[in-house]
């Protein structure tokens, strides 16, 4: 028998031994296990991107008894669109009548980061590494949205090519998280694409979800390995209601 010696850092060993929550069945759009995946969400405004993310957070932070994942979430909010009252509403829907104590334990699993410029963001990524080392319950990192500071950066010798800008930011985030096998979900606005770029060919992204709206119907198309599945959904005051697979 051949034994190959394998070296790993102390951090990797720690990660291997620690039981970090597994993100599985996060939403009907992402039914399987998401270990170390990078998921991109594209859409215009008012197509349900932020609401979808809020639903994902709610699913993560609720306890396993109520069909949740019991996992911590880090939400990096660059756009300032995240609404805590919406999250509370959705958690209450998932848990039915939750008391204050239960709600507290759910919300405590969410860590929110507001960031207003890119240099700070890059340092924050480094801090995320320290944070995840200490917090073994964090199972998901969300970045909303990558394009928030693009124009500000472009004046100070930043990357001008939009696709490369996104790739740079996501890969530096991934670099900080590589030892943790935590999935990353990030959003990008539909206009934010290099003119002649073909987004599906970006190999650092495992899946892409495209959000669209036609009048009051909402559509989400999940692309993975060049296979598209389209879902139709509705939004009401309770949040997102049922995804139905849609033949287009």
């Amino acid at each position: 028998m051949d034994f190959k010696p394998q070296a790993e850092s102390g951090l990797q060993l720690l990660e291997r031994l620690l039981a970090r929550p597994v993100i599985k069945n996060l939403t009907p759009l992402l039914p399987d296990e998401l270990t170390s995946e990078t998921i991109e969400i594209i859409g215009n405004t008012s197509t349900g991107k932020t609401l979808f993310l809020t639903e994902c957070i709610a699913k993560c932070v609720t306890p396993k008894i109520s069909n949740g994942l019991d996992a911590g979430v880090v939400y990096i909010d660059l756009d300032g669109q995240f609404d805590i009252t919406k999250l509370v509403k959705i958690i209450q829907r998932l848990l039915k009548n939750a008391d204050e104590e239960l709600l507290k334990s759910c919300l405590a699993k969410l860590t929110l980061i507001n960031c207003y410029d890119s240099p700070t963001l890059y340092v924050t990524f480094q801090r995320l590494k320290l944070f995840l080392t200490e917090q073994s319950q964090v199972g998901l990192v969300i970045l909303d949205s990558v394009s928030a500071n693009y124009w500000q950066d472009s004046i100070s010798r930043g990357e001008r090519y939009m696709d490369t800008y996104v790739e740079k930011m996501i890969s530096s985030l991934k670099l900080c998280l590589e030892d943790f096998k935590v999935p990353i979900i990030f959003t990008r606005q539909s206009y934010f694409q290099s003119k002649h770029g073909d987004t599906s060919s970006l190999d650092y992204i495992n899946r892409t979800i495209l959000f669209q709206r036609l009048d009051s119907d909402y559509y989400a198309t999940v692309t993975r390995k060049n296979v598209d599945i389209c879902y139709k959904f509705n939004i009401n005051s309770q949040g997102i209601i049922e995804f139905n697979q849609h033949q287009s």
Binding site: V61, I84, L107, L112, I113, Y116, T120, T124, L130
Partner: peptide, 22 residues
């Protein structure tokens, strides 16, 4: 390095704190 990271990054806020403030 660790000190600088903590000093120069954005604060990490707990979800429950935001809820209470809100």
């Amino acid at each position: 390095k660790d000190d600088i990271i903590v000093e120069c990054s954005s604060p990490f806020i707990n979800g429950y704190t935001i809820y209470i403030d809100r």
